[in-house]
Simulated scan of single mutants.
Amino acid sequence: MPENGKLREKVIVKGSNFGNDKSKVKVYFVDGASERLATIINLDNQTIYCLAPRQLPGENRIKVVVDDKEVITDEVFEYEQAQNVSTIAGTQNVRKSEDGTLAEASFEYTWGIGAVGNNTVLVFQRDNPRVRLVSVNDNKVATIHPGFKAGKPAVTKDRQKVYAIGWEGGHTIYMYTKGTGWAPTRIGQLGAQYAGRVLSAALDASEEWLYFVDANKKFARFNVTTQEIEDIATLDISGSLHSNGVYIVYHPIYDCFFMSNQLTYSVYRLEKDGKCQVFAGSSTQARVQDGYREDAYFAQPNGMAIDEDGNFFIVEGFKAYVLRKISVEDGYVSTVAGMVDVASQIDGTPLEATFNYPYDICYDGEGGFWIAEGWGQAVRKYAVE
């Protein structure tokens, strides 16, 4: 009990032989996609008090595990999911680079963002280049690296380190660490062999190599410890890559990368050996159409993020201005927030909200998708609870 509720709802499970040691008991909410661990507040031999974890909307059964024994309830808990889009900092009507509180701070064109925990993100600004730290808990925006121009960063799984590759020139690589207050440290440079622009970087599961694709279709990697650079392949795909570069993201379930390209309106599956094929979208169709990934279309796919279940979230730019999702379960592509071809900045429910050229997105692991807006010059958040 109760029979339904939202995130962190207090749920009581009645039974017997639970014991009194919380360390020996686990409670999971089980839906069609996965099992999610609940937080146990207290228990006695016949009652467990726990908090409902974030889940997919719909019915869940509750599984109780004590030592090596388990049982699943016959009754179901109906999870009510709440979704909302909000502006964290910045506004489309102010084009400056001023630090201060969330309400006072302003941005210029942003196109890269990485979540580092505790309601904090690093934002990479294209115009008047700099890296900004946005902390909701501290109510502040601060410039931590003036003059550096980079796109999507790569964040380690423990969110203690962030890597970014310089967009053009010699492609200098910087590391930002939580222990130093996110101060930048130069750790290497790619050099002139990558004349094309580099907009995005991604770590694989080992977190030893920083992978990237330049605008000349070169797929390569940089070792963050030894500074070794290794060319992997020149991508065999039709059409050109966008001159600003492309976005890539690592997918832990598939153990490969996915790449978006504005000019071919597509998302590609990119293997570690450089094999590349269209995953969703079509180079001949620039429009927003939902459906299974073989039939769905994109107008201008930009930054991507992967949630804990393996679902893709992709922001779309020109002539779209929406947030799309590709379900890992069945490959269905849906529009989850924003209004197609409406470029503005309105907060609210996904059906009410609008975006002003969203350029990149990251996931914080706690139901929050943070969005860097280009034209909107703001940091937005799509929250799923």
Rank of each mutant, 00 (worst) to 15 (best):
G191T: 08
L241N: 07
G170D: 14
S240F: 07
Q227E: 14
L241R: 05
F222Y: 06
A215L: 00
A183I: 10
A183W: 01
A164E: 02
I237D: 09
F222A: 01
V213C: 13
S243Q: 10
L235F: 10
Y163T: 09
T225W: 09
E228R: 08
I165T: 01
T172R: 07
K218Q: 15
L235V: 03
V213W: 06
F222S: 09
D204R: 03
I187Q: 06
A205V: 12
V198P: 05
S206A: 08
D158L: 04
G196I: 09
V213D: 00
D236Q: 15
T225K: 14
Q227T: 15
H171T: 01
W209C: 09
N216K: 12
L210Y: 01
R197W: 07
S206N: 09
G166P: 02
T225S: 12
S200E: 03
A201P: 01
K218F: 13
G170F: 07
T177G: 02
D158Y: 04
Q160M: 04
Y194K: 00
V198L: 13
G239A: 10
G181T: 04
Y211H: 11
G245Y: 06
Q227W: 00
T185Q: 12
H242F: 14
Y254I: 11
R221G: 03
I165C: 06
R221T: 07
S238R: 09
H171M: 08
L241C: 08
L199K: 03
N244R: 02
E208S: 11
E168S: 15
T172G: 00
A183D: 04
